[in-house]
Amino acid sequence: MSDESYWFKPPPRARELPMAPVRDEPPPVEITIDGRVLFASSNATILEVCRSIGIDTPTLCYLENLTPVNVCRVCVVELAGSRTLVPACSRRVEAGMVILTDSPRVRLSRRMVLEFLGSSVDLSTAPQAKGYLARYEAAPTRYGPPAPPANARDAREPGHHHAPEGNTSETVAQPTKIDNDLYVRDYSKCILCFKCVEACGTDAQNTFAITVAGRGFDARISTELNVPLPDSACVYCGNCIGVCPTGALMFKSEYDMRKAGTWNEPAQTQTDTICSYCGVGCTLTLHVQDNTIVKVTSPMDVSVTQGHLCIKGRFGFEHVQNRHDEPK
C-alpha cells in the first residue's frame, strides 16, 4: 500500500483481543435427573446434560454436527408430568424438570425400539446398535422369522398394502445398490435415522441428492425417482457415509475389503492430518491398514470441517498410494 511503513512492518498488536460478540446466556435452571439435583443451562438438551454428568444415553439418529431429528426414539427419558416419554436429544431442559433416565418405562421403550430395529434391519455392521441391543436385553427374534427380502421396496406406493400373514416379520431387506466406484448403498442396513439426508441437505452439503421417499414402513432413502447415484445430484462428498451409523452407506473400498475378508479394523491406524487440496484446511483422519489408506473421515470437533469433507478430501488420496505400487 502507499503508506510505506505500513507495507514494510506488520501492524501493531491490538490492545484488546478481538472477540465474538457475547451472547446473553439465560440463567441456569435447576433440574433433577435420576434423583440428582443440578443446575444446567436452559440452552442445553437433556442429552447434553446427561452426558455432562456421565449418564450414558443411547442415541442412533443423533449426531453432534446435525440438527436433532429425534426419530429413532432410543434416547427417550421419562419426564414427570409428561404424558409420553420425551426425546433427550432434542428436548431442552426447563426449570423444575424431574427426569428419569433408567426407569422401567424408559427401559421398556428403549428395548422395544431396539427390538423393532433388530427385527427389521440388518445390524451386522452396526456395532453401536448391537451393543445397545445387548445392554437392553432386546430379543428381536421374538417377532418370528424374518420375511424374505423384498425386491421392489423402492417402487412401493403409499396407501393400501398387502396384509401380512403374520408368520414372518417384515424387514427392509433388499438388494444392495452398487452404481458407482465410490459408494455402496445397502439399505437392508438402513434404520432410517435421516442423518444422511441431513448431511446431504442444509446441515452440511446442501446438495439434496437424497431424501426420504414413500411412507410408513415403506419409507426409504431415495434419489429422485430412484435414479442411480451418477444420474442424481450427488457430488460424492461422502458426508452421508460419514454420518451413517449402521454401515448401510459404505465406501466402496471398505465394502470390497469386507467382502474379500481383508478388512481388519483393529490393525488400522487413524492419523489426523490436513487435506492437501484447496486452502480451506480440512482435517482428514486417515485410516491406514498395511501402509494403505483405506478410508478417510473427519473429526466432528474440528471447527473447519465439523466432520464434513468434499470429494477431493474424501477420495482424492489415491495418488499417494499409486506411487507405492510402482517402485521408483
Partner: peptide
C-alpha cells in the same frame, strides 16, 4: 398405511 414412517415405534 398411514404412519408417516418417521419414528421407529410407529413405523
Amino acid at each position: 398405511d398411514e404412519s408417516c414412517g418417521q419414528c421407529v415405534p410407529c413405523r
